[in-house]
Design a protein around this nucleic acid. Structure first.
Lengths: 347, 347
DNA sequence: CTCCGTTAGTGTTACGTATAACCTCGACGA
DNA sequence: TCGTCGAGGTTATACGTAACACTAACGGAG
């Protein structure tokens, strides 16, 4: 090895070697330590302004970027958080991510997104497959089994739309119970008495709450009843199948309460296939207020969950936990968006 | 709250000190070097099976996870690739990511997803905001300005659905031209002669190709014409507005050719609002074959782009480039999905 | 008995950064 | 005159891992 500088034993193949802080130091005629001080803005009263500017100029000319691996190793923390979402395909979680990324960026923290693949058991380990060193985790409404995997990481964990006091360092939830109360109240006031619950087939806290509150609210009105509950995978097809089954029963429900807009869109299709008009023959409601909710005809009455704010609040909670603060559960308000898919039942 | 595991942190400054390979070594009664050899599976003929097993047991008991920052620093490569998508909200790019992640995992490489925020100029630098050390980049059909930012990273770059020979180390494209030819041929055979092009308002290669091929194919048939081209932001609302304008013109088109399913769904709504029936009064086509394409009524005739395969092929290309291979452009086949939104024009 | 190859390890180093600890020099007060 | 102080740096080191270079023991061949 006649290579002067990096005669070291680089394993593997050739790597385009980026300039290091030492290269910058050499070019600026200072020591590596000075470069670090200047570039980290720790130079007040320790480096003269002229030299500081020289260092910055050298860095700019070389296109220097600090090696994140080395920085992380040295500092012991990565200024990076992992955001875990159950599905990327679901627009709601894209919003959650956007909010989390925004909040993190405000604190100069980066975000790595981990979309948990279907079937958590078979999923690759989020902590290594995310390939970044991490300081903490924000995870959205996961199934209980997925939650168990996450808590093994040994990292501060903030849960979104999850059971309060469920072992996480903090929890941030949209007010799911209030959302379902709004839906039930709206439909009951319209005169509906026979409900079907098109439920998600995921065993997570948020869906248990939805089922519980719906049952509760309906039971509070004499003569009202949830005549059938059908479970469905959270996509349009699942909603279609489940709603078809629900509508096929003997005492046909007049309102289909769906745990998710995707299910509701499927329910819309199911109703149409059975020759039922929405909302004249059957009302349909969803959850989330996805773009799709206003893309379909009629537009969906749905509960708007503040996805972006949820992600942002979750990230802020994580950053607070990392600073040593102790947090409990935060609850964010939700809204009912009344649109064309709900109306009084046919007499 | 009283969970023993997660509550193990003292108040104040707590550094999440995970066990290191040295801790494992001590517990197993060997040197740190041996731990590294065993855990990296480099021990064939260098460590006795008994000791190797002891090391693995110690690692398991301590819950040891190698420090990725240290490993990356030592190796000079991260076994991590960045996947850049223009929008997370778009299901198509979720598919691209899924494919890329799958292909990367097969080679034991991790993936970090970077959803380019709106307005690339103002976006935080993808390379630092992704917070991971990276070996290469796979980027999907970006606007030309975004591409410029990416090429500054000094990393091997594979572009998806982009201009061949556009400066990337390799390019993988769905056969967009063939897709548009299928759409145009289908509509022309049905008898359509007056077309509107509902185009994306993004200046990228893929959309220029779509416009070019549509114009070309239509011009090849006497009497056929693209009577209007409307640009729209790639979402349902954008499609609605653009299609409204297109349908308001004097020589009303009988077919709305949309650059994206989201635009097509908007077009469906626009037609309905104007009292036009689809497909009887006007035909509509899209691109991508999103879930939404079959959620609407009528279901969309659209070009299915192989999103997952695109991502996987892109990642395989990147890995090949990292191994030193030289690649050109790969083209993946596309399919026309004929559904209910197209029919012969009214006489 | 010596030489050599093999097996089974260990010692040591470097990766690039951040920072504590140290050094140097001129000005200044006593 | 000397000690002291602060400004303006530099030197040295540690972070955790991977792997090269080395060693020691042992057995068989010459």
């Amino acid at each position: 090895m006649s290579d002067g500088r990096a005669a070291g034993q680089r394993p593997g193949e050739w790597i385009p070697s980026r300039p290091t802080s030492r290269d910058v130091a050499e070019r600026a005629g200072v020591s590596q330590a000075t470069v670090s001080l200047v570039l980290r803005d720790r130079w007040a009263g320790r480096v003269s302004p002229a030299r500081a500017e020289a260092v910055r100029a050298a860095a700019r000319e070389l296109g220097y970027r600090p090696n994140l691996a080395a920085r992380t190793l040295r500092l012991g923390r990565a200024r990076t958080a992992l955001v875990v979402v159950p599905a990327l395909t679901n627009e709601f979680f894209a919003r959650v991510h956007a909010g989390a990324a925004r909040a993190a960026a405000a604190d100069d923290v980066g975000v790595v997104l981990y979309p948990s693949p279907e079937g958590v058991g078979t999923a690759p380990d989020p902590f290594t497959s995310a390939s970044a060193t991490l300081d903490g985790v924000v995870a959205s409404s996961m199934a209980t089994e997925a939650l168990a995997v996450l808590s093994e990481g040994g990292l501060p964990l903030v849960m979104l739309d999850s059971e309060p006091d469920g072992g996480a360092a903090a929890t941030v939830n949209p007010d799911i119970a209030a959302g379902m109360r709004l839906v039930a109240g709206h439909l009951l006031r319209l005169g509906h008495r026979r409900f079907a619950h098109i439920a998600a087939d995921v065993d997570s806290w948020t869906f248990r709450v939805r089922a519980g509150v719906l049952a509760e609210e309906v039971a509070a009105v004499p003569g009202a009843e949830v005549v059938v509950t059908e479970r469905a995978s959270i996509d349009v097809r699942g909603g279609l199948l489940a709603a078809s089954r629900a509508l096929a029963g003997p005492a046909r429900p007049t309102a289909l309460v769906c745990d998710d807009d995707l299910l509701a869109v499927g329910a819309l299709k199911a109703a149409r296939r059975r020759g039922l008009r929405v909302p004249d023959d059957v009302s349909v409601t969803g959850f989330d207020d996805l773009t799709m909710a206003t893309a379909v005809e009629p537009e969906l009455t749905t509960v708007r969950l503040p996805g972006e704010e949820l992600g942002a609040a979750g990230m802020r909670a994580l950053l607070a936990v990392l600073r040593g603060e102790v947090l409990g559960t935060t609850v964010l308000p939700v809204e009912l968006r009344q649109r064309g898919s709900t109306a009084p039942p046919a007499p």
